[in-house]
Nucleic acid binder design. Sequence first.
DNA 1: ATCTGTTGGATCGTACATTATTTCACATTT
DNA 2: AAATGTGAAATAATGTACGATCCAACAGAT
Lengths: 234, 234
Amino acid sequence: MTATAADDTNEFAASEQPLSIYELIREDIISGRLEPNARLKVADLATRYGTSTNPIREALQQLRGEDFVVMEPNRGARVRPIDEAFVRDIIEIEVLIEPALTKWFCSIATDADIVDLEAAQAEIEAHNFADPKHHGELDTRFHQLIYDRHYNRHAADLWWKHREILRAISRRFPTSLSRRQAVLREHRELIEAIRAQDADKAAEVVARHVEGSGRHIIEQMGVAKRNGPRRGSA
Amino acid sequence: MTATAADDTNEFAASEQPLSIYELIREDIISGRLEPNARLKVADLATRYGTSTNPIREALQQLRGEDFVVMEPNRGARVRPIDEAFVRDIIEIEVLIEPALTKWFCSIATDADIVDLEAAQAEIEAHNFADPKHHGELDTRFHQLIYDRHYNRHAADLWWKHREILRAISRRFPTSLSRRQAVLREHRELIEAIRAQDADKAAEVVARHVEGSGRHIIEQMGVAKRNGPRRGSA
DNA sequence: ATCTGTTGGATCGTACATTATTTCACATTT
DNA sequence: AAATGTGAAATAATGTACGATCCAACAGAT
C-alpha cells in the first residue's frame, strides 16, 4: 500500500492524476471534514463527489476493510467513532513496533540520514507549533525518515495507518506547553542516540515518546468531553 | 485432491444465516481453494457464488482493505501472493505483540483458565499432528484462550488476522518432527509460566514460540519451492 | 398509551453501457 | 523466412441506471 501521498493536502492534487473516490473519502475522514460517527449515505456522497453510487459503495467497502468505516447490514456506513480506548489500543501497539523499527534504523543510518533528521527537527523547532495541522505534517515527516526505508513493509504500513488516525485526532486539539517541550527534547535525544549508535537508548526514547504522545492525546480528548460537545458558554 | 469445495465449511455448519459473499471469498482464500496470486475475475466469481457482479466487486474491495487481495487499476484483482518476506514481516510483528498480550493474560488468569489451557493442550497432544488442518484449528484455539479476552481489541484483531494468514499457509506444509516436539514443549512451558505467575518467562516463551513457528514455515516454503513450483490452475 | 399498518428513504442486487486492456492475426522490415 | 510492429476484435474492468428489499419512523385504531 504505502500511500506516499503524505504531505500533499490535496489542494494541488489536480496536478498529477485525479484522486480516486477512495482517496477522496479517506482524506475527508482523516482531515475531519467527515466527522467521526457521521452517517455516510451513498447517495449524498455520490452527489458530493460527482459520481454514481457504485464507486462510492466500493470505496466504502475498502475503507471498512481498513477500519476507517463501520457498517451494519441494511443500515449503511458511518465514520469510525474514535474514543479513548481506541487511541490507547493503537498506542500500545505502536509502543511495541516503533522501537523495533528504530533499532533497525540505527544499524543502517548514515551521516546523510542524521543530517536529514536534524533538518526536519530544525523545521519543527522553527515552526514551533504555530499551526497544529502543519506541525502534524512536520512531525510525521521526521518519523517517516526513520521508518520509511524499513525492510518490513507490513510494519511500516501499519505505523503509517496508525499515524494517520492519530494525526486526524490530534489535529483538533492544542498541544500543551509541557508536551511541546517533551516532544522537542525527545526528538533531540533520539537523534543523539542514533548518532551514538546506541540502539537500545534510541528504542527507549521512542517508546517514551509514543507513550507520552498517546497519553497527551487521551487527556485532551477527556478535556474536550468534559467541556461538553460544542455549546461553549457555562 | 480435487474440488470438495462444498463440504469444507462443515465445521461452521451450525451457522444459520448464509455467509456473505465477502466471507465466502475470504474462506476460499484462507483455505487455499483460491490459490495465491490467482486472478480474481468478477464475472467468474459471480457465477461461482451465484450472484451478480456488484456484491463481488464490493467484497473484493473490502478484502483489498484487509490486504487479502491486491488490485491494479483497470487490471483487476489477485489473491495476495505470499512469499517468505511477507511471512517474515508478519512474524516480526507477532514476536512483538504476542508476548505483550501474554503478559497481560498472566495478570488476569484464573485457575479455570489454566484448566482450559491444559485441556486444549491435551487435545493437541492427543491429536498429535495427524491432520495439519485440524492441528491448525486446535493450536489456534489454544492461543485464542490467551488472547481473546484481552482489552486491546485492536491488538487481538491484528493477531487474529495474522493468524489466519499463517494458518492458510502452514496448512499446505507438513510439520517436521523436531518442530512438533518444540511446539508441545513450548506450550507446556507457557502453561507452567502462567501458572507460576511469571509474566516475563511467559513472554519469553511466546516470543521463542512465534519465532520458531515462523522460521519453520519459511523453511517449508523454501523446500516446496526447490522441489518445483506447484501444479495448479493458472 | 400500546400496537399495527403504512409510507418514505436508503441499502442491496441486477442489468446494461462505457472504457481500458489483452490477444491475435496480419503486414512490414531485417 | 523470422522477428517485430500495427490494428482490430475479444475480454474484462469500471461506471450508470433502475427495480427489489429492508428498516425506521409515523399515523391511526383499539
